[in-house]
Amino acid sequence: MMSVISVIHFDLDIIGGIVNTWLKYSNLFIKGLWMTLGIAAAAVAMGSILGSLIGVLSIVETRWKWLNTIIHTLVKVYVTALRGTPILVQLYLIYFFLPEAVWFLKDLPKLFFILLALTLNSSAYVAEIIRGGINSVDKGQTEAARSLGMTSSHNMIYIVFPQAIKSILPALGNEYIMMVKETSLASTLSLHELMFTGTILRNYFLVWQPLFIIAIIYLIVTLILTSLVGMLERRLSVSD
């Protein structure tokens, strides 16, 4: 009976192990979950502010061509670097390098560096979301507005942005869902978010049980968030 099935230990009480771990330590998981949701929200919120700024910079046209070139190149470098390297590398660079390089940052709490790294990472993705959202608005809208004599900033604020927001908001929702999952990397820096619950419970010789629970919680959360984003998307698209 050397089949695949025989590899699994049938004496292993998978369900029982998971349920017992949950019953005993649910408060730890819940605490971690709140941290996960909170830190992801903070990172995406701050990343959205920074990213909006960068996104707008990426399409801004000043009167001076050379200045445009400089701005657009800097934005491109920033976005490319942050999207082209693993978030774990960014996290470690900021966590280990920054306090050594900048003396007044030395005594700041761990959470500061983690949030900074996640925020910067998020801002690069948000910048692309904003740029894409603005570019998705029909060029005829801007032409009509400008032909009426609207200034380019009024056109952005009153014509383009209100239309761009329809594709931007759902994309920001998806960015938040991504970030909820990415925050698990912070467990490697001993931040007590959801994933770190697993690290803690390993000290109690619970290795795989917490991981199943963690996976299930992430899944439930992302499913809920995904359906919320879907609802938002449908809501926004009716008014077209």
Partner: peptide, 20 residues
């Protein structure tokens, strides 16, 4: 140019009304 454009109305093939 914005001041002058106010006095030059334009109508486009694809209307370009503001949908929002």
């Amino acid at each position: 140019i914005n001041l002058h454009r106010q006095k030059i109305g334009m109508v486009f093939q694809l209307f370009n009304v503001f949908p929002h």
